[in-house]
Design a protein around this nucleic acid. Structure first.
Lengths: 104, 104
DNA sequence: AGGATGATACGACGATCATCGAACTTTGTG
DNA sequence: CACAAAGTTCGATGATCGTCGTATCATCCT
């Protein structure tokens, strides 16, 4: 099913840091971290094109930061906080600033 | 004087994450974090060319991760752990794995 | 003054990146 | 069935990246 989600124990730090180094993607991750229930891809980063959004979501998924699945027409996403926290403890919290707004 | 070290409070998260996303640079940062007293640039990452090394050190300095100064012919480097920790608490520790060897 | 050494500057190279638009696929609904 | 909506795929473009070699600069030592 779904796509190519890396196993939790083989998430690559370089890939994660690269994925998070883009402000647009970091914004998506921040929204993902803040939203209670899953929302479709299209509801994030409305300022960019559909194809660019698809690209960013793929980078995040390939890096192991998010999990994605389809629900009808929609594609839903979920932050793999557990896996990331297990592999790189504290990383996500420090990047997301412990809930503080994302800057730069 | 010296070069272009960003002020501690204007260190850019994107730049920091991008700088740390390269394994070679992460290796340098890990060595920097582990070494007691400052060593010249040339003593890090001996497997790459001088010019490449200069490039990596500039990326790290521009990102605000390290401070550099000259001592005669040598150029010394120091990890700006205090500034980074103040701006992004926990980030460096989680990336460096709390002293655990750098992987990926 | 003349070497020797540590580091930078300057292209240059292939690779990757973020972004876009247009065409296409998939799914649900009238 | 036909249409609309959500995503993907497929170039393409301009920018940036990591790496290199060579030339150059700065500093120390003899």
């Amino acid at each position: 099913m779904s796509f190519e989600h890396p196993d939790g124990d083989q998430i690559d730090l370089s890939a994660v840091l690269h994925a998070l180094s883009d402000p647009q993607r970091r914004g998506i991750v921040a929204e993902l971290a803040a939203s209670e229930q899953p929302r479709p891809c299209g509801s994030y980063a409305p300022n960019i094109t559909k194809s660019t959004r698809t690209h960013h979501f793929r980078v995040l998924r390939d890096a192991g930061l998010i999990e994605q699945w389809k629900e009808g027409t929609l594609k839903m996403s979920r932050l793999r906080r557990d896996d990331i926290d297990a592999r790189f403890p504290g990383l996500l919290d420090s990047v997301l600033g412990s809930g503080v707004p994302v800057r730069s």
